[in-house]
Design a protein around this nucleic acid. Structure first.
Lengths: 172, 172
DNA sequence: CCGAAATTCATTCTTTTTCATAGAACCCGA
DNA sequence: TCGGGTTCTATGAAAAAGAATGAATTTCGG
């Protein structure tokens, strides 16, 4: 058994990928890009979020979300308003039209989740979700409004750039 | 609590994202692109894989893997050889140089995983990994050599394209 | 054995995401 | 209140990812 087959990050990535795959096929069949689904599903039935908060929740970079939100606003599915009290920030809220658009998608997502978990012990599912929330809670310190990056993430070990991979990150 | 906060796909995606984030920062510090890490880590210590098999394992599309592998071969970290017996296929194997390059990364990945799971009950970790493997096994039917897509994924419900999202998938 | 259909990888072209950065607004101490 | 440092969003160039397609090979029905 190779290294990755017992590596938590890989197991999570693979499970995530497989669980989402079926629903993404449904989204594709309806012509809905995944990014738009994520944004609308995150905003649905909730309070307005700033661009930064939204980016953290949908697991995308801030510039990506800015562009996505601008497209969605052009279609009337979300609305952007300056935040009173801090004019740097922009609130993004879902519109009535947006809610009407996501509603059937959320219903489909719930059905899909039920299919994926079909035949699994309810206790086991609860345990899995609980464990995931535990991991998330442990690692998501202070996240939720706009995390300022934590480079080392607690790793005290050597981070010296490996010359073999001649750092080809355009550095200027 | 919003819809997504109890949605399995989201919990998995978020946990995956958070768990990987710290290690990706280490990769960035060494100048190693994430895709290259995934390919090398997947090939490390194992038999050669075809491009299709590799794409399925690293959760990327085949064209992405083709390009990645060509770059890695140019640097001598992997080698591509035609498969004897089926000349359509191409085997990708890691080279000695490749193994020497990933070894420290794998060690760092193991350390990082240990940090992430630090303070968690070993039983709980085992249960989490077991549950993830269970989900993976359930959904990964016939995957592993090059899955031919399963459109509906078992969903028997309506898939009629929603006209509101004017299907902008160039359908040819 | 022949030819249609399917499989596999490479390539091309378009779209999306990301990096880097600028510009505006806020915060806080002197 | 002024100024330096920080935070937040937007933008523009660059890179990566993705869809569609092509070329070569294999498979299978007749």
């Amino acid at each position: 058994m190779g290294f990755v087959d017992d590596y938590l990050a890989y197991l999570l990535a693979r499970a995530s990928h497989l669980v989402s795959r079926g629903f993404h096929a449904q989204l594709a069949a309806r012509g809905v890009p995944v990014g738009e689904w994520r944004v609308l599903a995150t905003l649905a039935g909730g309070r307005p979020l700033t661009v930064g908060e939204l980016a953290a929740r949908v697991l995308m970079k801030q510039p990506t979300v800015t562009k996505l939100v601008i497209r969605l606003e052009a279609r009337g599915l979300v609305r952007r308003t300056p935040v009173t009290g801090d004019r740097r920030k922009v609130h993004v809220r879902i519109t009535g039209a947006g809610e009407r658009e996501v509603a059937p998608l959320i219903a489909a997502a719930r059905r899909h989740e039920a299919e994926v978990l079909e035949g699994l012990d309810a206790t086991e599912v609860a345990a899995l979700k609980r464990a995931l929330r535990h991991v998330i809670h442990r690692l998501a310190d202070g996240e939720g409004q706009g995390v300022p990056q934590r480079p080392g993430s607690g790793s005290s070990s050597s981070l010296s750039p490996n010359r073999h991979w001649k750092a080809r990150r355009h550095q200027a």
